[in-house]
């Protein structure tokens, strides 16, 4: 399975440079939300690009001819999302370190645990919504969703934050009074539920797919 993810990285050597530029762009433009936006965008671009290579090369035919079970292909794809997110976070860290070392007069959002959770939550939401579509219809046919989903997820997360703070302060203060652990665990639980559900659908689609 690791090899399938290795392949995503080998294929995207050139994309990484492009992703770094994206991160810098989000750092400079998005202010305090820069970390979450940059990390999520980086992971999302890497994911979409990996899927584009799969589609263009009709890789399913070869992948399903080597000693692999179909489940592994689906699992590797979901796992790759976390690894792409990790790459985004590390890249962000390296760039901010560079900025610090060079004493550049830039205000950038710091890396925080909350931010990391935010990145994971958004990319998982994005991937969970998009991957079943991709497994069913392929990359090209679902192109229209790439931007729509990205916008929708950010709007949704923004709305949630707003809802908690302004519209339902009771719930917000209730959540604020919980310890970090409880919040983390509930978010983790929610994420696992979403990923699990999405993975179930993708697996069901891919298991019966014909190439």
């Amino acid at each position: 399975m690791i090899n399938l993810i290795l392949k995503d990285f080998l294929l995207q050597k050139k994309t990484f440079l492009f992703v770094l530029l994206y991160i810098v762009f989000f750092m400079l433009v998005m202010g305090s939300g820069g970390f979450v936006a940059a990390g999520t965008a980086a992971a999302y671009i890497l994911l979409l690009n990996a899927l584009a290579y799969d589609d263009k090369n009709k890789s399913d035919i070869v992948l399903n001819s080597i000693p692999l079970v179909r489940n592994t292909i689906v699992k590797a794809r979901y796992l790759s999302v976390f690894i792409f997110a990790g790459f985004g976070i590390i890249a962000y860290w390296v760039i901010s370190l560079l900025i610090k070392l060079l004493h550049l007069p830039l205000m950038i959002a710091p890396i925080s645990l909350g931010g990391i959770v935010g990145i994971l939550l958004s990319i998982i939401l994005l991937a969970s919504l998009y991957l079943p579509l991709n497994f069913k219809y392929g990359y090209i046919k679902t192109r229209v969703f790439h931007v729509i989903l990205f916008m929708a997820v950010f709007w949704l997360l923004g709305f949630l934050a707003k809802y908690l703070q302004e519209i339902d302060p009771g719930l917000f203060s209730y959540l604020s009074n919980r310890t970090d652990w409880v919040i983390m665990l509930s978010i983790l639980g929610l994420v696992l539920l979403i990923v699990g559900f999405s993975y179930g659908i993708s697996w069901r689609i891919y298991r019966n797919k014909e190439f």
Partner: peptide, 14 residues
């Protein structure tokens, strides 16, 4: 099994 197909060839970029 060893296989050789006319196409595709896996990832052409590798």
């Amino acid at each position: 099994i060893g296989f050789v197909y006319e196409e595709p060839y896996f990832y052409e970029e590798l």
